[in-house]
Amino acid sequence: MLNIDSIKNGIVIDHIKAGLGIHIFKYLGLDRADYNVALIKNAESNKLGRKDIIKIENIIELNYDVLGLIDSNITINIIEDEVITKKIKLNLPEEVVNIIKCKNPRCVTSIEPNIKHIFYLVDKQKGEYRCLYCDEAYSNMEV
């Protein structure tokens, strides 16, 4: 197992499905970070077989809806003075606003200025969402 220093104050994003870590890393802009960050790919996991982990030596703002949408199995650990002070288990959000954009060219979102793109969860198992306006279906895997 690769040895990565434990962090003093920051965030550990754990149980990321192997392969998705790089997308989350980029989404959070960590490739441009000027503080310590680590992306661990394909770490061994009892639960998942293989998983990705991101360690961030900083407290940054996270959008749990976006992260839950990318991978609802993620666990977020908040570390203070080398101790886990908060553990957050993510879920698929019931509603997502301005994260997915409706691709249906016939949808009202294609013409109305400054409209909120709203999607609601219709099938938790399949991770299926529908546009609030036109009912166009999206899978969370497309995000």
Partner: peptide, 10 residues
């Protein structure tokens, strides 16, 4: 009535 889907919902 509107040609765009979801216009009345909006």
């Amino acid at each position: 009535r509107h040609p765009k889907e979801g216009a009345p919902k909006l």
